[in-house]
Amino acid sequence: MKRLYLPLLMIVLFFSDSVFTTVFPEMAFDGKYFIIPRFFTVGLLLMAIFFDRNTAIKYGFLFGFLFDIFYTGVLGAYMFFLPLIVYIVSKLVKVLQNNLFILTFIVLFGIFLLELILFQLNVIIKRTEMDLTQFMSLRLGPTLLLNLIFYLLLALPLKSAFEKLQRIYND
């Protein structure tokens, strides 16, 4: 029964992105900036670090697939790149030290990478007319800031949750 907490937690994180987008007033700061919540991705990366990498890759694949179908309509983008980011980040964690301070930078790097890849993808398929400087100033900065705040608030609770879940799964 307690094993259900893991999918439940990920589902909550999955919907939290879109709920944030609907609740957060878009015209804040003149509506100039694109502030993108990546709460699910932050959760997924923490899951890869504190729970299990391969499970995180599977979750990234599945929820990325749902994200593509329901929100963006471009099949394959999140489905493929979320697992890739999880893989790269977990490799980085193995090389670098594993404490929450260093992890902040690694997780932010993961989000940076995801944003950059999706920006390039959207430029290629002509779904945006943003150029790189606009992307950096209007989108990347505010997005990283928002997710940094989210990480600082929820890294510890998520860490303990994933560690508890790991004990449950190991029993």
Binding site: S18, T21, T22, P37, F70, Y71, T72
Partner: peptide, 13 residues
Amino acid sequence: IARNPDRWYDVLT
């Protein structure tokens, strides 16, 4: 019920 959270493309559900 939802707005595309990644906002690359302005779509609503």
